[in-house]
Design a protein around this nucleic acid. Structure first.
Lengths: 261, 261
DNA sequence: TAAATGTTGTTATAACTACAACAACAAGAT
DNA sequence: ATCTTGTTGTTGTAGTTATAACAACATTTA
């Protein structure tokens, strides 16, 4: 009687991303729970149809996750997960390395059709992708960076890049709160967000994300800081940049005024 | 005109193991070759059907591999491969870690049905799995190890384990050739393979792999050293063990004789 | 013989692949 | 202005492959 689903859905999902199928994952898990088993026992423990167990076990042998006995009926045993998973992962890592090398080569040699890509406004999804882009833009900045942003946005990576850059270029930051070490050579204006300048209704929304101005030339606007629903726009488009510089100037004036309260 | 297949099959295969589909890989590669492109241009560069390009680009955005412009027509650009691939890989690594933790927990708590698994003869496929098993068996050995094996079999891992163990237990090795540092505390008999004892026809075949005897209790026999077609048998079965101990004794007698040539 | 094992098929389902067709839109021509 | 023409983005519909699920049969073991 095929029993005990036991809910390994989480682990199965993880194993799938390592290239296993659902059945392969279930059988492997089942084998880890005992010291050894026949095909039929595996079927009972894992819930995988008995007839499907055989081909699946072949796959797992090929992937070096199980060993087989000579006996009749054959008995199967799982190799320790440290080795099994380690094996799978190192294969993938190897592939990733190869891909990265090959693709980086392609990326460096890429043709630049003489289009004015800089007039475009680009979208970026996902908070990690956004943070990485910020670090990248920061690395190419030559004169100054001006920032209005929610503190959540400043990952360790970004803070490190900022601290590093602050030695060479001007860094100006407006934020409702600054965590961590005192901002050495940077100008950081800490202003509570509740009442940003009058008349700018959408200003508060903006503050939920951030505005980054690099060299007065490239602007990145981030909206939404939820887990993965963050969106960023960035552009070198003149109009786009001008709009946000003006916006920034407005805020900085207000920020520089001494707190009246 | 969709052109230039350009044979990225290798890279595509690598990217597939990172969880991308063929189309996703092709589109990503295509985007890396230019600074930006419209859906139609991507179709032309990559050879992916134009209608398929749109959903594929959505997938890639979700995987944080490309960014999109606001313009009409939309333009797409690839994020640098170091970041893109790095992202994918770190996700997988995270999953692998979680899986390994969960599975190790299961593995430790596994039920031991009181069966005599030790009477079975087990098969193991793949040279890396075999080498790892050897290291594992070595770790649990308490008195002595006796080995007849082809030098190819001794990976760095195994040599290290042997050198380490040699301080506590007796290690005896017969091999036609010994590479690397002189075998400190181990007894190594180097004997050319060509004419092993008389009358044992299959002996030569055996020497193409190896025989490991752990504590006179567990025996592992390896046959075939090809890339991935290596097979090992191991067992604690009394008959199996006795057979190979007798075989070993035969060889060791011959090996200890001074070279007559 | 009966039960369990191992093998071989067939079917279903889902995902990926591939292509055809359509509406919306813009640019240019008459 | 209207009518082409071509492009873009969307939708739908098959073909293909891999996985999933089950049924049936031959073989072994007791």
């Amino acid at each position: 009687m095929p029993a005990a689903p036991d809910d390994f859905t989480q682990i199965v999902a993880c194993l799938k991303s390592l290239g296993l199928t659902k059945y392969e994952a279930l059988v492997y898990i089942a084998l880890l729970r005992v010291t050894g088993a026949t095909a039929t026992e595996i079927h009972e423990i894992s819930g995988v149809p008995r007839a499907s167990v055989y081909p699946v076990l072949e796959q797992l042998q090929a992937k070096e996750l199980v060993s087989v006995s000579q006996s009749s009926p054959k008995r199967f045993a799982a190799l320790p997960p440290e080795e099994g998973i380690g094996n799978l992962l190192s294969c993938i890592q190897q592939n990733a390395l190869r891909a990265q090398e090959d693709l980086s080569a392609i990326y460096e040699e890429r043709l630049s059709p003489e289009r004015e890509e800089q007039e475009l406004i680009w979208n970026l999804y996902g908070i990690t992708a956004i943070r990485k882009k910020i670090v990248e833009l920061l690395a190419h900045t030559e004169r100054d960076v001006r920032i209005i942003a929610h503190p959540q946005l400043f990952s360790e990576d970004i803070k490190r890049a900022l601290n590093h850059k602050a030695h060479h270029i001007a860094v100006e930051i407006i934020t409702p709160q600054w965590d961590g070490e005192p901002p050495g050579t940077m100008n950081v204006y800490v202003k509570k967000t509740p009442e940003i300048p009058k008349g700018l209704d959408r200003a508060k929304d903006m503050m939920a994300g951030g505005v980054f101005i690099f060299d007065n030339r490239t602007v990145m606007v981030i909206v939404g800081l939820g887990k993965e629903d963050a969106v960023a726009l960035y552009s070198e488009s003149a109009g786009f940049v001008r709009f946000f510089i003006r916006y920034y100037d407005l805020i900085i004036d207000w920020a520089k005024k001494p707190d009246l309260k």
